[in-house]
Design a protein around this nucleic acid. Sequence first.
DNA 1: TCTAATACGTACGTTATGGCACAGACGAAT
DNA 2: ATTCGTCTGTGCCATAACGTACGTATTAGA
Lengths: 259, 259
Amino acid sequence: MRVSKLSLVKTRRLAPPAQDSAQHPQLNHLLRALPEQDFAGLGDHLELVYLRLGDMLYEPGKPLQHAYFPTTAIVSLNYVTAAGTSVETAGVGNEGMVGIPLFMGGNTTPGSAVVHTAGYAYRVERALLKQEFSRAGGLQQLLLRYTQALVTQICQNAACNRHHSVEQQLSRWLLLTMDRIASGQVVMTQELMANMLGVRRESVTAAASNLQAAGCISYRRGHISVLNREALENRACECYAMVKKELQRLMGERQVDRQ
Amino acid sequence: MRVSKLSLVKTRRLAPPAQDSAQHPQLNHLLRALPEQDFAGLGDHLELVYLRLGDMLYEPGKPLQHAYFPTTAIVSLNYVTAAGTSVETAGVGNEGMVGIPLFMGGNTTPGSAVVHTAGYAYRVERALLKQEFSRAGGLQQLLLRYTQALVTQICQNAACNRHHSVEQQLSRWLLLTMDRIASGQVVMTQELMANMLGVRRESVTAAASNLQAAGCISYRRGHISVLNREALENRACECYAMVKKELQRLMGERQVDRQ
DNA sequence: TCTAATACGTACGTTATGGCACAGACGAAT
DNA sequence: ATTCGTCTGTGCCATAACGTACGTATTAGA
C-alpha cells in the first residue's frame, strides 16, 4: 500500500534565513488588499513566523489556533484517505490564507494543512480573527471572497483528478506554484509532488521527463525551473487558467465592495 | 469524445404533482434550523417552486438570481471540462442550499447547478438573501456552517475521484442520494449517474450489476432501490461516512452559536 | 575523497477504466 | 398488441496509471 509521506517528511530543519527584515505583511495579497481601517484591527497582532517544510499547521479534527497569511511560504491543504493515500485539495501561498474554518464556524476540518515550501507567514490568533471577522466589515468581505476563490480551486481539482492526465496535472500544479514564489524555481522532490497530486512518484518522473524533453522545464534533484512558460501552459489543462481567472475576478484590483 | 448529456436532458416535463400542500419550508433542514427571529426576515419571501429534471439553476459565469432551499428536489453542482466531460462536485438536497456564491460575494461560479431529481424547493431573491445575510445573525452563521460542510463534501469528492473505484463511488453516491429522498428509490438512469460520477455509462452498469448481485441494491430501467443498506455502506469508501459525519457535526442538533 | 543517504530512471507485468459497437430488453404511447 | 425510442448488457481492444523491483546518479557530510 502506497502511503503518503507528507506527514513523515524528515528534513533538514533549516533555520530561517537571517533577512527577516525583508518580510512585510503587504507581501500577502489579502493583507495588502485590506482597507486601512480594517487592517488596523489586525496589524498589531500579526506575528511573523517561519514555516518549515513538513510543518503541519492543522491536523484532521484538531481545532485550529491560528490563521496564517503566507508571504513566501506555500501550504498544501490535503486529504488523506483511509488507505493512507493523499491528495492536495488546494494550495495556499501569498495570495491567500490558511484557516478558513475559523470563521466558517467549524473550527476544525477533516483535512490537514502542511507546509510544502518553507518560508514566512504572518499569523493571528483564532479569537482575534473571529472577532475582526464578526465586525462584518472589509475583512469579512475579503475573506468570504477569498473563500469562494478557494472553493473554485477545490472544485477544479476535483474535475481535474477525474479527467486529466498526470502530465496535465503536473503542469497545472507547477504553474500555480510558480505564481506563488519569487525565485522562479520550485524546490521540491518528485516524491513530494507525487503526494500532492495523489499519484506515483514514477508517474511524476515520466511526466517531468516529457516536459523537460519538450523544453518546458528543466530540473535536477529537488529543483524545478520553468524554461518556457507558454509551452507549459499549453500542456496544462484548462484548470490552471480557470483557477487563475476566477482568483483574478474575485480578488483582483476591484475595491472591496461597500454595498 | 464523450460529452455530458446533463444539459441536454430531453425529458417528459411532468407537471408538478398536485399535492403542493404537503410542502412546507421546514422540510428543508436549513430553514428548519433557523431561529424564529432569523426566519422571520425570509419567511414571507419564500417562493415554492417545482424543479424539473434537467433544469439548470445556474450556469457558468451567469449571475445567480435566487437561492434555492430544496425540500424534495435534489440538485447537482457540476463542473464541465473543456473537453465536454463533467463531474459532480457536490450534491444538494433537503439538507442544504443552492447559491452559496450569492453571499460569498462572487455572484457567479465557473460551475453549474442542475436538477437531477425533480421536486420542490423554496427560493428567495438574491437581494433579499444578501440583505438578511448581512444582518450577521443566525442566518449568517447557519449558512457559513453549511458552506463548510459543502466544502468538506467537495474535498472528499476530489480525494474520492483520485483514489477510489467506480463501484465505491457509485455506492457513496447512492447513499448520499438516498439520504435526501423520502421514497427509498432513486429515479435516475445509469447514463445520468455516469455523468454525475464523471465515468462511462458502461462502468456504472458493471458496478450496479455487481452491487445487485451482492444483494445491496436492486434496479430496473431508471429506478434503483437499496435492499441492504449496511452492505452498501461496506462497499462504499469512507467518503460517505466522512461527509455524513461532518455534516452532522456542523449542522446537527447543536443550536446556532450565540458566541 | 569516500560513503551513505537520497533522488531519479527504467522496466515489466497487472489492472481499472475508456472508446466503441451492437444486441437485447423494457415500457410508454399509439 | 405492436412499435419505437430508450435503457441496459456485453464483448473487444486500447491505454493510462499502478505495484514492484532494482539500477544509477547526485549530494551532503564524515
